[in-house]
Structures are given as C-alpha cells and as structure tokens.
Amino acid sequence: MKTKQKKEEINILGLPIKEAEVIAAELNILLSNFQIYYQNLRGIHWNIRGKRFFDLHVKFEELYNDAQLKIDMIAERVLTLGGIPLHTFDDYIANNRLEVGKNISKDTDAVNLIMTSLADLLKIERVILDESAKINDEGTNSMMGDFIKEQEKTMWMMKAWSEEEI
C-alpha cells in the first residue's frame, strides 16, 4: 500500500505558505521597530539644539523621510506575503526592541540613539534575511539586503561624525 506524500502548500508567489507566514510575522516586528525609529527621528529632528542644529536638523529629516519610505515598503511586503501589517501604536510598542528617545536635544545623544537603533534594526533584518534565503524569497531577500547596505553606510557615517575632534 502506497502512502501519499503530503504536498507542500505553496502560495501564489511560489513560496511555502507556512514559512512565508513566519517571514511576514518577522517583517511585522521590523515594521513595529521602524515605526519607533521613525518617531525617534522626528523627535530629535524637532528638538535638536546647538551649533550643529542646521546640519543635523536637515540630516534627521532626510533619515526620517527614508524611514517613512521603508515603513511603507515593509508593510507592502507583509501584504505581498499574505499577511496583515501591524498598524497600531499598541502593536508597535509590544514588538519594540529599540530604545525610545525622549526629549533628546544634544547632538551626540541624538547620533548615539540613531546608531544603537540602526544596530538593533540590523539584527532584526539579518534574521529576516536568513529566513527568506532558506525559501528563496528573493523579494524579501533583496529588500533586506538593500536596507542592510544603506543602514551600514549610515552607521559608518554616524560613527565618523561622532569621532570628530572638536
């Protein structure tokens, strides 16, 4: 008597459904943390003070605009994989792994918050990259690779700025 081998369920993208659901859940964690990162950037953009105000105010706006675009990309990828993107502050806070910056106005504190936030985002992204690579999810893989490359460069620049002699 032959036993029927259970056929793996595949979604419309050609990815295994269960694994795609796991990746969508991980992307929702990333989405939540990017929302916190975005809010941190808005806060330091608004509250930065001192002699470097003009340069940092513009830089922080550039970073929060970029984060806003990435938030939309992450949410759309969750939808593409068949998930539902998280969209409440309660969800964001429950999934947050980043330091929340409150009333940061000093330039070095702001840059340090960005660097630690990016380091934490990179950890989440590398987990997603690893999981998406296992199932040949090139869409998620490519997005994570692009995010990682950009954020590593931003961290390098922030580190170079923070080592500047005054």
Rank of each mutant, 00 (worst) to 15 (best):
K7H: 13
K7S: 09
E8F: 14
E9S: 05
E9V: 13
E9G: 00
I10C: 02
N11M: 04
I12K: 11
I12L: 07
G14S: 02
P16V: 04
P16M: 05
E21D: 08
V22R: 13
V22G: 01
I23D: 03
E26D: 14
E26Q: 14
L27Q: 07
L27R: 05
L27M: 13
L27Y: 08
L27W: 10
L30K: 03
L30F: 13
L30D: 06
S32H: 12
S32F: 11
N33M: 08
Y37Q: 12
Y37E: 07
Y37R: 05
Y37S: 01
Y38F: 15
N40V: 07
H45N: 03
H45I: 05
H45F: 11
W46G: 00
N47E: 09
R52Y: 12
F53M: 06
F53K: 03
F54T: 02
D55P: 01
L56E: 06
L56Y: 09
L56K: 03
H57Q: 02
V58S: 01
K59E: 11
F60K: 01
F60T: 00
F60A: 00
F60P: 00
F60Y: 10
E61P: 01
E62I: 12
Y64C: 05
Y64G: 01
Y64A: 02
Q68V: 04
Q68N: 12
I71T: 09
D72H: 12
M73E: 15
A75H: 08
E76S: 08
R77N: 12
V78I: 09
V78K: 05
V78F: 10
L81E: 05
G82S: 06
G83H: 05
I84Y: 10
P85Q: 08
L86I: 14
L86W: 15
L86Q: 09
H87G: 14
T88L: 07
D91R: 07
Y92E: 01
Y92S: 00
Y92H: 08
I93T: 11
A94V: 06
A94P: 03
N96F: 02
R97T: 10
L98M: 06
E99F: 07
V100K: 10
G101P: 05
I104T: 00
I104M: 04
I104P: 00
S105C: 10
K106D: 13
D107C: 04
T108F: 12
D109T: 01
A110W: 14
N112T: 10
I114D: 00
T116L: 07
S117Q: 07
S117E: 07
S117I: 06
L118T: 00
L118Y: 12
A119I: 09
A119L: 11
A119D: 15
D120K: 15
L122G: 02
L122M: 10
I124H: 04
I124N: 04
I124D: 02
E125A: 08
E131A: 05
A133D: 13
A133C: 08
K134E: 11
N136P: 02
N141M: 14
N141S: 13
N141E: 14
N141V: 04
M143L: 15
D146V: 10
D146M: 13
I148Y: 09
I148C: 08
K149G: 03
K149H: 12
E150Q: 13
E152Q: 08
